[in-house]
Protein backbone atom coordinates (compact mmCIF):
# COMPACT_ATOMS: atom_id res chain seq x y z
CA UNK A 1 0.00 0.00 0.00
CA UNK A 2 1.54 3.39 -1.02
CA UNK A 3 2.42 5.89 1.73
CA UNK A 4 -0.11 8.43 0.45
CA UNK A 5 -2.87 5.81 0.67
CA UNK A 6 -1.90 5.04 4.27
CA UNK A 7 -2.21 8.71 5.15
CA UNK A 8 -5.58 9.00 3.41
CA UNK A 9 -7.01 5.91 5.08
CA UNK A 10 -5.66 6.61 8.56
CA UNK A 11 -6.89 10.21 8.34
CA UNK A 12 -10.28 8.92 7.15
CA UNK A 13 -10.54 6.69 10.23
CA UNK A 14 -9.68 9.61 12.52
CA UNK A 15 -12.36 11.75 10.84
CA UNK A 16 -14.90 8.95 11.27
CA UNK A 17 -14.17 8.77 15.00
CA UNK A 18 -14.32 12.58 15.37
CA UNK A 19 -17.55 12.77 13.33
CA UNK A 20 -19.23 10.14 15.50
CA UNK A 21 -18.08 11.80 18.73
CA UNK A 22 -19.53 15.04 17.41
CA UNK A 23 -22.77 13.22 16.52
CA UNK A 24 -22.85 11.93 20.08
CA UNK A 25 -22.53 15.45 21.48
CA UNK A 26 -25.16 16.80 19.08
CA UNK A 27 -27.55 14.04 20.19
CA UNK A 28 -27.46 15.20 23.81
CA UNK A 29 -30.77 16.72 24.94
CA UNK A 30 -31.06 20.50 24.85
CA UNK A 31 -31.19 20.52 28.66
CA UNK A 32 -27.49 19.54 28.73
CA UNK A 33 -25.46 22.71 28.91
CA UNK A 34 -23.08 22.44 25.94
CA UNK A 35 -21.06 25.37 24.59
CA UNK A 36 -23.05 27.17 21.89
CA UNK A 37 -20.12 26.47 19.56
CA UNK A 38 -20.98 22.73 19.57
CA UNK A 39 -24.68 23.29 18.86
CA UNK A 40 -23.78 24.91 15.53
CA UNK A 41 -21.67 22.01 14.34
CA UNK A 42 -24.31 19.91 12.51
CA UNK A 43 -23.02 20.89 9.03
CA UNK A 44 -19.47 20.21 10.25
CA UNK A 45 -20.58 16.73 11.35
CA UNK A 46 -22.01 15.95 7.87
CA UNK A 47 -18.84 17.12 6.16
CA UNK A 48 -16.43 15.37 8.53
CA UNK A 49 -18.39 12.22 7.73
CA UNK A 50 -18.81 12.61 3.96
CA UNK A 51 -15.60 14.43 3.03
CA UNK A 52 -13.26 13.43 5.87
CA UNK A 53 -14.33 9.80 6.09
CA UNK A 54 -16.13 8.61 2.93
CA UNK A 55 -14.39 10.67 0.24
CA UNK A 56 -10.96 10.46 1.78
CA UNK A 57 -11.25 6.68 2.19
CA UNK A 58 -12.29 6.44 -1.48
CA UNK A 59 -9.34 8.62 -2.52
CA UNK A 60 -6.92 6.40 -0.62
CA UNK A 61 -8.27 3.26 -2.27
CA UNK A 62 -8.38 4.82 -5.76
CA UNK A 63 -4.76 5.93 -5.45
CA UNK A 64 -3.78 2.43 -4.37
CA UNK A 65 -5.89 0.14 -6.56
CA UNK A 66 -6.79 1.83 -9.85
CA UNK A 67 -4.81 0.60 -12.89
CA UNK A 68 -1.29 1.99 -13.03
CA UNK A 69 -0.24 4.33 -15.85
CA UNK A 70 3.31 3.06 -16.50
CA UNK A 71 5.92 1.06 -14.58
CA UNK A 72 8.11 4.17 -14.33
CA UNK A 73 5.49 6.44 -12.79
CA UNK A 74 2.72 4.01 -11.84
CA UNK A 75 0.41 6.38 -10.01
CA UNK A 76 1.18 9.67 -11.76
CA UNK A 77 2.81 12.62 -10.05
CA UNK A 78 2.87 11.79 -6.33
CA UNK A 79 3.59 15.44 -5.45
CA UNK A 80 0.15 16.32 -6.79
CA UNK A 81 -1.27 13.57 -4.57
CA UNK A 82 0.38 15.05 -1.47
CA UNK A 83 -0.71 18.55 -2.45
CA UNK A 84 -4.28 17.30 -2.81
CA UNK A 85 -4.11 15.58 0.60
CA UNK A 86 -2.71 18.69 2.32
CA UNK A 87 -5.20 21.11 0.71
CA UNK A 88 -8.23 18.91 1.40
CA UNK A 89 -7.34 18.36 5.04
CA UNK A 90 -6.30 21.95 5.71
CA UNK A 91 -9.60 23.11 4.20
CA UNK A 92 -11.68 20.64 6.18
CA UNK A 93 -9.98 21.46 9.49
CA UNK A 94 -10.42 25.16 8.81
CA UNK A 95 -14.13 24.56 8.22
CA UNK A 96 -14.37 22.59 11.46
CA UNK A 97 -13.15 25.64 13.38
CA UNK A 98 -14.49 28.39 11.15
CA UNK A 99 -18.11 27.37 10.61
CA UNK A 100 -19.22 27.37 14.27
CA UNK A 101 -17.11 30.48 14.92
CA UNK A 102 -18.84 32.36 12.12
CA UNK A 103 -22.25 31.12 13.33
CA UNK A 104 -21.70 32.21 16.94
CA UNK A 105 -19.68 35.39 16.37
CA UNK A 106 -21.12 36.80 13.16
CA UNK A 107 -19.88 40.31 13.94
CA UNK A 108 -16.25 39.26 14.39
CA UNK A 109 -15.36 39.40 10.70
CA UNK A 110 -14.30 35.75 10.52
CA UNK A 111 -16.17 34.93 7.33
CA UNK A 112 -12.93 34.81 5.38
CA UNK A 113 -12.13 31.54 7.19
CA UNK A 114 -14.95 29.86 5.29
CA UNK A 115 -13.94 31.40 1.97
CA UNK A 116 -10.39 30.10 2.40
CA UNK A 117 -11.68 26.70 3.58
CA UNK A 118 -13.91 26.42 0.49
CA UNK A 119 -11.03 27.28 -1.83
CA UNK A 120 -8.61 24.83 -0.18
CA UNK A 121 -11.06 21.91 -0.27
CA UNK A 122 -12.06 22.67 -3.85
CA UNK A 123 -8.43 22.77 -4.98
CA UNK A 124 -7.64 19.56 -3.07
CA UNK A 125 -10.39 17.69 -4.87
CA UNK A 126 -9.61 19.19 -8.28
CA UNK A 127 -5.97 18.07 -7.91
CA UNK A 128 -7.07 14.56 -6.92
CA UNK A 129 -9.41 14.24 -9.91
CA UNK A 130 -6.56 15.44 -12.15
CA UNK A 131 -4.37 12.69 -10.69
CA UNK A 132 -7.00 9.94 -10.85
CA UNK A 133 -8.49 10.67 -14.29
CA UNK A 134 -5.73 9.02 -16.41
CA UNK A 135 -5.97 5.88 -14.25
CA UNK A 136 -9.60 5.24 -15.20
CA UNK A 137 -8.55 2.87 -17.98
CA UNK A 138 -7.81 -0.68 -19.05
CA UNK A 139 -5.28 -2.72 -17.10
CA UNK A 140 -1.66 -1.74 -17.86
CA UNK A 141 -0.11 -4.36 -20.15
CA UNK A 142 3.37 -2.91 -20.57
CA UNK A 143 4.85 -0.92 -23.41
Amino acid sequence: MPTLTRWYIKSALVYLAVALILALLLALPATVNLPLFIRFMTPVYFHLFLVGWVTQMIFGVIYWMFPIITRVQPRGNVQIGWLSYALLNAGLLLRMIGEPLVATQSAAGLGWLLVVSALLQWLGIVFFVYLAWPRVKEKYRGG
Binding site: V102, L110, G111, W112, L114, V115, S117, A118, L119, Q121
Partner: peptide, 8 residues
Protein backbone atom coordinates in the same frame (compact mmCIF):
# COMPACT_ATOMS: atom_id res chain seq x y z
CA UNK B 1 -17.46 25.51 -2.25
CA UNK B 2 -19.58 28.41 -3.53
CA UNK B 3 -22.16 27.76 -0.80
CA UNK B 4 -19.51 27.62 1.92
CA UNK B 5 -17.85 30.79 0.65
CA UNK B 6 -21.27 32.47 0.55
CA UNK B 7 -21.79 31.47 4.20
CA UNK B 8 -18.58 33.29 5.08
Amino acid sequence: ALLLAHKG
